[in-house]
Simulated assay, not measured.
Amino acid sequence: MVALEAWFDRDATEPTIVDTPAGLDGVLDTVAGWPGPNTVQLLIAEDPGHAILDVGLDAEYGRGVLYYSGPDAPDGVTSKGAHVSDPPPIYYFTGSDTEYPADAELPLDVVRRAAHEYMTSGGARPTGIEWQSR
C-alpha cells in the first residue's frame, strides 16, 4: 500500500495526502457528496510522475468514470462500461471539464474499488476493468 496525493479542491495549494483506506474513502465520499459529476486525481505521493488515476464520481446517478496513465498505458486509457450516455458524460476537475467516451461510465462501487486497488497495488492499473483508448 502506498500513500496517495489526492487533488480535488480547486482552492488547495497542496494535495490531500491519504495513506489509509479510510482516508481514501473520506476523499471519495467528499467528492461524491458534491453536486454533479466531479473528479479526484490520485498520484503516488513518493513518485507523482509514476502513474495517475482520475476517479470521476456522480453519486446522483450512481455512476463514475476512470482514467489511468502509467507505465503500461503511457497515452492513457479510460474505463469502458455497459451504459451508454447520450450525450457523452462530462466530469469536472477543479473547475475544468473533461468529456469521456459515451460508454466510459461504471457503477460507483466498481469505481471506488478501482481507487482502492490503485492504492494497494502501488499505482498499478486496476484490474477487473475493461479499458479503452482515450
Rank of each mutant, 00 (worst) to 15 (best):
Thr20Gln: 12
Tyr91Arg: 00
Pro74Asn: 11
Ala3Glu: 13
Glu46Phe: 02
Ala32Glu: 11
Glu117Gly: 12
Pro101Ser: 11
Gly26Thr: 11
Thr16Tyr: 07
Ala32Cys: 06
Val27His: 02
Gly56Trp: 00
Pro107Arg: 01
Ala124Ser: 13
Pro37Ser: 09
Leu28Gln: 01
Phe93Thr: 00
Trp131Phe: 04
Thr94Ile: 14
Asp109Ile: 10
Tyr118Asp: 08
Glu117Pro: 10
Met119Pro: 01
Asp11Ile: 13
Ala104Val: 03
Pro48Tyr: 06
Asp25Asn: 15
Tyr67Cys: 05
Gly76Leu: 09
Leu42Tyr: 10
Ser96Arg: 11
His116Ser: 13
Pro126His: 12
Asp72Phe: 09
Arg113Met: 11
Gly56Met: 04
Asp109Tyr: 09
Gln132Lys: 12
Glu99Asp: 07
Leu24Tyr: 04
Leu108Gln: 10
Thr16His: 11
Ala51Met: 08
Ile44Asp: 03
Ile17Gln: 10
Pro74Ala: 08
Arg10Asp: 13
Asp109Gln: 13
Gly122Asn: 05
Phe93Asn: 00
Val40Met: 01
Pro89His: 00
Thr30His: 13
Leu106His: 00
Asp9Arg: 14
Ala82Asp: 15
Thr39Asp: 07
Ala12Leu: 11
Pro48Val: 07
Leu108Trp: 05
Leu24Ala: 10
Tyr61Arg: 15
Asp97Asn: 08
Asp25Lys: 13
Val40Ile: 10
Ala22Arg: 15
Leu24Lys: 02
Ala12Thr: 14
Ala73Asp: 11
Asp103Gln: 01
Ala22Glu: 15
Val77Ala: 07
Gly123Val: 11
Thr120Pro: 04
Gly123Tyr: 07
Ala102Phe: 00
Arg63Tyr: 06
Leu4Phe: 12
Ala114Ile: 09
Tyr68Ala: 08
Ala115Trp: 08
Trp34Ser: 00
Glu5Leu: 13
Ala114Arg: 07
Val111Lys: 04
Pro89Thr: 03
Leu4Thr: 06
Val110Phe: 01
Pro101Asp: 12
Phe8Gly: 04
Leu108Gly: 04
Pro89Asn: 05
Ala114Cys: 09
Leu4Asp: 00
Glu99Met: 14
Lys80Gln: 13
Arg125Thr: 11
Ala104Met: 04
Thr120Ala: 12
Thr127Lys: 14
Leu28Lys: 05
Gly64Met: 07
Leu24Arg: 05
Ile129Pro: 11
Val111Gly: 03
Phe8Asp: 05
Tyr92Met: 08
Gly76Pro: 12
Val55Cys: 01
Thr78Met: 03
Ser96Asp: 14
Ala3Ile: 06
Gly26His: 02
Ala114Asn: 07
Pro89Cys: 01
Tyr61Glu: 15
Tyr91Met: 09
Gly81Gln: 02
Ile17Pro: 05
Arg63Val: 15
Pro101Arg: 00
Pro88Val: 04
Gly128Lys: 01
Ser85Cys: 11
Ile17Tyr: 02
Lys80His: 07
Asp54Asn: 14
Pro37Phe: 12
Gly64Ala: 02
Arg112Trp: 03
Gly95Asn: 02
Tyr91Asp: 03
Gly26Pro: 08
Thr30Gly: 04
Val84Met: 02
